[in-house]
């Protein structure tokens, strides 16, 4: 990038350069792909590009989105968190267990679920920083362990019949917009600002680029890692709560497979799996692209088995297109 910019300095004024850089960024390429996909899909059916449908898709993608945000942080540092789906399941079970079996007020049970999520994430982070367990291994083990706790605590029972107000978050709307979508948007904005505009955010890139160098330059690497894994646990817990509110019951298998959906959104969004680069904007576009593809294909009559073939191909192809473009840009 730098080489490219200096070579252009004399010819073009500053704002054109910035515009060019912006247009060639991973996010714009992906946005372009998304727009193309949306345009193609909207010519196939008039049910797709309606405010109502799009808002409804927002409702359906909120849980994965909430998890994908901290997942972006973690992947930017070169880590990964495979236990998110299990944490969501554990929190969901704890919510029901706290309210129904322990007799807590529902408000307190919700807090309990979120705290359990945060503790689960904190434990991941603690092992990772104290014993230097590689994140993939640590969270692979807790993927099984947290799910096992959820199963053990639930004893195959589900908790249902919550009071009416509990469903407000997952099933109602405010000003025509699904309630949980507000949380996703706010969380996305906050996490985006933190990642791109604060020292903390920049430290995550530093850790991902070269952890040792980051440590020597005085960045509290361990503390920051602990924070992001705890955040990931908390957000997974929150996603679990949102799901319970949306589907009105708890099950111990809730959230299984979410880890791959969240990772797919993050890597599709241009975050390098090796750490050091990526953005929340990219993740959000990746999330939206996957959701709209699933929805749009379904609305045009493509069945579920064919849809996952398309999604898999898009994941590989768009990463390929992006990497070719980025290499061109760097090569110039």
């Amino acid at each position: 990038m730098t080489a490219h910019e200096t070579s252009q300095t004399r010819i073009a004024p500053a704002w054109t350069q910035q515009l060019r850089a912006l247009l060639r960024s991973q996010e714009s390429v992906l946005l372009f792909i998304t727009v193309i996909a949306v345009l193609i899909l909207s010519t196939q059916t008039d049910k797709f590009l309606t405010v109502r449908n799009l808002l409804n898709q927002g409702r359906l993608m909120t849980e994965i989105g909430l998890i994908a945000l901290p997942m972006t942080y973690i992947i930017v540092t070169g880590g990964i968190d495979l236990s998110v789906g299990s944490i969501a399941g554990l929190s969901a079970i704890m919510l029901g267990y706290g309210w129904y079996n322990l007799g807590l007020p529902l408000e307190l049970a919700i807090v309990l679920a979120l705290v359990i999520g945060a503790i689960a994430g904190f434990a991941n982070g603690l092992f990772i920083i104290l014993f230097r367990v590689p994140p993939l291994i640590m969270t692979l083990a807790t993927l099984a362990f947290y799910r096992g706790l959820a199963e053990g605590i639930a004893q195959a029972r589900s908790v249902r019949d919550y009071p009416e107000w509990f469903y407000a978050l997952g099933q109602r709307e405010t000003l025509g917009i699904p309630n949980q979508l507000y949380f996703l948007v706010i969380a996305a904005i906050i996490t985006a600002i933190i990642l791109s505009r604060t020292t903390f955010g920049r430290s995550l890139y530093a850790i991902g680029n070269n952890e040792l160098a980051a440590r020597f330059s005085g960045i509290p690497v361990r503390r920051n890692k602990l924070i992001i894994y705890t955040l990931s646990g908390f957000m997974s817990g929150f996603a679990g709560y949102v799901l319970v509110s949306r589907v009105s019951t708890t099950r111990s298998d809730m959230g299984s497979g979410w880890e791959l959906d969240a990772i797919a959104a993050v890597v599709l969004g241009g975050t390098s799996i090796f750490g050091g680069s990526g953005s929340i904007v990219g993740t959000m576009i990746g999330l939206v692209l996957i959701q709209l593809l699933k929805n749009g294909l379904a609305l045009t009559g493509v069945t579920g088995d064919a849809t996952i073939v398309v999604i898999g191909s898009v994941l590989i192809l768009s990463t390929l297109i992006n990497s070719v473009i980025q290499r061109r840009v760097e090569g110039l």
Binding site: F145, R147, G148
Partner: peptide, 8 residues
């Protein structure tokens, strides 16, 4: 009910 937790 607890086997998966112990395995993990």
């Amino acid at each position: 009910f607890w086997t998966r937790a112990i395995q993990g």
